[in-house]
Design a binder for these strands. Sequence first.
DNA 1: TCCTCTTACACTTTTGAACAGC
DNA 2: AGCTGTTCAAAAGTGTAAGAGG
Length: 660
Amino acid sequence: MPLYPSSCDMAARAMPSHLLAPPPAPSKPTCKVQQDSVKMELENGSLWKQFCSVGTEMIITKKGRRMFPQLRVKLSGLNPGLRYILLLDVVPVDTSRYRFQGDTWQVVGGAEARLPDRVFIHPDSPATGAHWQSRSISFHRAKLTNNTLDTQGYIILHSLHRYQPRVHVIEARDVLRWGGGQHSFIFPETQFLTVTAYQNNKITELKIQSNPFAKGFREDGMNSKRQRDVRQKRKLNEPLDIVSCDPCDSTELLSQSSSSSPSDLQSLALASLPSLPPLPESVCGYGSNETHFQESPVPEQQQALDLVGQTFIASQMADITANIPADITNGLQDASGNKVTDGMMDRSITMSLSPYNETYPATPLGSSSFAPAPHPQSSSSYRSDPSIPQPSPTSINYPSMVTSDYPSILSSSPTLPSSTTSPLLQQTSFTYPTLSLSTSSFPKPLLSSTSFHSIPPSDPQQGLLSPHTPTNTYFPSLPPPCCQPIQQNGVTTHSMLTPPNQALQAVPISNQTPPPLSVFNPTAYPYPNLPLSNVNQTTPPSLFNLSIYQPSSCSAIPSASVPSFQPSASSHIPPFSLTNHSLPPTTCPQNQTTTPSSYPPIAPTEIGSFSQFNPGAPYLPEMDPRSSFPIPLRHMYRQHQHGHTHPQGSYMDMSGRAVF
DNA sequence: TCCTCTTACACTTTTGAACAGC
DNA sequence: AGCTGTTCAAAAGTGTAAGAGG
């Protein structure tokens, strides 16, 4: 089956795949997808902005915690026929550690050593552009943890640090060979601080009001403070006075209410407040204010399309699937140990946001810079407030972070394109998981420090992880008062005050540039046939150094003696290991020879694949482990159709290993 | 003593298996 | 036999509060 849509197929087939570096220009206009036409909107942007205005906090736990609000995006501009992989990663915004003091977050020191980067692979991946564009894409299954020894593959973060999620869109073919079509997006309003317990009561209130799982903690919920007090009192008094503690006695509740604590009253007050000022959206061009929280039924047409798309995927998966050990292929499990069988359907939840109109003067991101306005759907825009200290460009002082020797699949470096050297190409050693202190030739930040979404670039001139003492104590990289598209090195980024008529869905970190994607088949997909100098000049930042490796079942990879990863221009990179769940265990492709010296040290058993239930794929029944009989197709189909079965998503660690 | 983190808890939502009916 | 809809228990996802640990 073709790797390209039929209309482009001939061009693609015209030459051996290993010579497709970069891929041939589409022969027909219909094939052409403008790189910069890919757009991403944050669907629940208004919710994010509410949190952002207060200072978003994300709980991280050892067992992993989901993010709330969840990242829900809408994609457009993709080639409907091409397959794409969507990834989520989270990178530090700065090199500071924070503490919540006096109702504000303050920098209290330098960041802890950077943790291994991990990437959440959207469970629908790979899927066609049509698939991605036909629905909202939610990363709600991604989990954050503070467990540095986490084996589930969750995204590991430090507590009390500030992070920025990123979404990456990659053409699946890029996984196999050099080509264009990588897109990375950040939404500044999705920055958050990690905590193990909420620090800001306003965030707690907002979470409780917004998150369905926390419904019980709402004023009218069974787990509200009032109710908990009632329960506690009943517990204490039960042996003595049962009658007065009747939970059904409304007078009891009222009396409890009247004597509620100040914080309780505050909660009530908060809940009764008018809505949060409608956050400025239109001016920023942050897409529509649409809040598609409600799940909408998939039209039949769409289902048919899905079927076609998934068939396409399945067939192509067979094409690109590398050998996966049977135990992996058949035993894919999600992080919870459940079998991954289904593509994730978007299961939006209806967010009933309670009015929230309090102004939080000391909020990190300059909440007061949001003009009050009706919530939440009205258009709004970011407005700079002169009274709010804005980060001075010079106040953002980013110590260098490891990069060149830090083998991330997505270059964890939040830096932006380099005009010098592709970090991928710089990687000369594989130091995972130890941070390398090498600061050599780290790409310079693309964006000026005035960009509100500036992410800590690494500056070779500065010390690594040195204590950060910004002059701007609160959130050093606040949105600047002026937000204009920033063009540099051919990459356009946007800032907050993009003219209203300018569609600004996300901050594209990189596009239009040859990806530093590094997923190669040792022989079939050698490193792009580009002169290194060219690469250096054109390679964007180390945004995406994706390295996905072949399972060792493909023989020749001596797992025990895997040498350092040396992604030099001549390096051979193992092929991407993708498989479809309904595919039988694969065998080593004939054209795959291995070059052990190019393989990173991966434990073969950790190499996995991600899959999805694919009703359109050739049906190879999943085997019931108990009965050894195939699980009825109808069951799988129904689960898919009803969205009852959801893969938990997959994760990759920094070396590109998929973690299940 | 303070700060941070962990854990148990009670609640809500989600998931998926079983079942009945067509 | 296959499909649809309902029910229900288990699992998973929430914030809270108490307590541990540095």
